[in-house]
């Protein structure tokens, strides 16, 4: 319970799994009161991070543009219609 700082380094899936672990630990009722508060705080941070990640998700459709040498030179907006 020390990696408070590297929460943001977790992938969404890792964060989600960690949140589930925390909830399970809380529900087991085995945690001491102090620990339960720490766990809850951590769980909240994870949840917020996951939610932010989901809310940030937005469609952005691009198309690769190829340079003269056939190598990708960048992307442009893509409209599939």
């Amino acid at each position: 319970m020390t990696e408070q700082t590297d929460l943001s380094a977790l992938s969404f899936e890792q964060a989600l799994r960690k949140l589930e672990e925390i909830v399970a630990r809380l529900e087991s009722g085995e945690a001491a009161l102090d620990e339960s508060i720490t766990l809850y705080t951590q769980g909240e941070a994870l949840r917020a991070q996951c939610e932010a990640r989901l809310k940030d998700a937005q469609a952005r459709i691009e198309k690769i543009t190829l340079g003269a040498n056939g190598q990708p030179s960048g992307t442009t907006a893509f409209d599939p219609s």
Binding site: L16, L19, E20, I22, V23, L26, E27, G29, A31, L33, S36, I37, L39, Y40, G43, E44, R47, C50, E51, L54
Partner: peptide, 19 residues
């Protein structure tokens, strides 16, 4: 996922309240 997260959050909150 969002719903799951909210459920998790609510569960955690309930737990802590129960504590």
């Amino acid at each position: 996922l969002l719903a799951g997260l909210q459920t998790s959050g609510a569960r955690a909150l309930r737990c802590v309240q129960r504590y």
